[in-house]
Amino acid sequence: MDALSIKGLKKRFLKGRKGEVRALWGIGLRVAPGEIYGVLGPNGSGKSTLVRIVATLLLPDAGEVRVFGYDVVREARKVRELIHRVSTEAAFFKKLSPMENLLYGARLYGIPGRIAARRARELFSRLGLPPERVGKPMEQLSRGQQQKVAIARAFLHPPRLLLLDEPTTGLDPRSKREVQELILELREREGTTVFLTTHDMDEADRICDRVAILDEGRIVAQGTPAALKARVSRDGAEATMEEVFFAVTGKEWRDDESTEAV
């Protein structure tokens, strides 16, 4: 059974009185259990919309999305038990400490506070979060530390499918590297399937088993990074993912983090 299967997925948003934005238009993909699958695309290409639909936070207009066989619309509660999502924005109560935020999160998943606190301490230690930070408000932590707390929260109740929506956007190179190592380690240790969106070409190349390139709501190419690069290489020289993107979309890659994601 696929960890994630998507068929004919469409989603549009109304903007203003008559305008509409086609965020996703006929998306289809399958992710195998234990795989790290990356969705690569510029801002506004529909990556976040795709993740939100899988996370049961948006309803699709058409098509079917299943997580380990469960339909995200009709069996949303079952799906929610199997997934967790970590997004670019730190979705925390800013005044609460990492421990207080994690206790809240754990209880939502039915984990009693005592067990959650013990597990949270183990995760903080494994992630290298300084002990003196555990009781401080989240707003006093760096972006990198906040993102580590977000990943720790996701693994309090280990998900079978981890949705990472641009988890390293805005991080400094060292924090970015640490988070990437963590994703690989957690996949190795827990066997978790990872569905990752990114606009970082190197990240996709480095940690994803397969990637899909999303442009204007459509998947324009998918395969392993090596296969995609081989498809566009010339004269035996290995192509870069930027060259792959150009070849399949006809557009220059613009890594503009300031644009609002769709």
Partner: peptide
């Protein structure tokens, strides 16, 4: 305002 609404609505509790 806190930015946690999607997190809370994504949890499996009713």
């Amino acid at each position: 305002w806190e930015g946690t609404i999607e997190y809370t609505f994504m949890a499996p509790s009713s």
